[in-house]
């Protein structure tokens, strides 16, 4: 069951996150809260001319939320806001079990979280960072 949820990619991003830090050059930040467990994280982005130049996150969460957010940042840095929004939409499709194989390829390492779609209790953990991203992009478009 849940053991195959904790694959190497997820464990590695949780134990050795690339983007869990502050961001001095951030142009915008938004907080996301998972009310069912009280976990919260803050997403920081530096957006210039519609391009996400850099990003990071701070806060506390389970391995799923931490790894998911870290993988997300790895994916969206260097992309335009529109491209990032598209990835968010694809991620949501994956979590609701509606994604095609081609679309899954676009998600790269985030595909490691596909099994979460079978664990309803953890969906909120996996989508916490992504929902915060969507909120941030909407507020800053």
């Amino acid at each position: 069951m849940s053991d195959n949820m904790y694959n190497e990619i997820l464990l590695d991003h949780n134990l050795h996150p690339l983007h869990r830090c502050g961001l001095d050059c951030a142009t915008c930040s938004a907080a996301g809260l998972n009310p069912s467990c009280g976990d919260q994280l803050t997403l920081h982005l530096s957006i210039e001319d519609g391009v996400i130049k850099d990003g990071s996150f701070t806060g506390i969460g389970c391995a799923v939320s931490q790894a998911s957010t870290d993988i997300m940042l790895e994916l969206i840095i260097g992309k335009t806001a529109e491209q990032a929004q598209r990835l968010k939409t694809l991620f949501s499709k994956m979590i609701s079990g509606e994604i095609t194989d081609e679309e899954l390829d676009e998600l790269e390492e985030a595909g490691a979280l596909q099994n979460i779609s079978k664990m309803p209790a953890r969906v909120k953990c996996a989508t916490l960072g992504w929902n915060t991203l969507e909120k941030l992009l909407k507020e800053n478009s």
């Binding site: 069951m1 849940s2 053991d3 949820m5 904790y6 069912s36 467990c37 009280g38 976990d39 506390i60 969460g61 389970c62 391995a63 799923v64 931490q66 664990m119 953890r122 953990c125």
Partner: peptide
């Protein structure tokens, strides 16, 4: 290890325990 992950590992072994703030934030 985050408590949610603790509970998930237990669940994989069919042991039901609770994780979270237990309605006492």
């Amino acid at each position: 290890v985050h408590p949610h992950d603790i509970a998930a590992v237990f669940d994989a072994d069919s042991v039901a325990i609770r994780a979270g703030h237990h309605c006492a934030q």
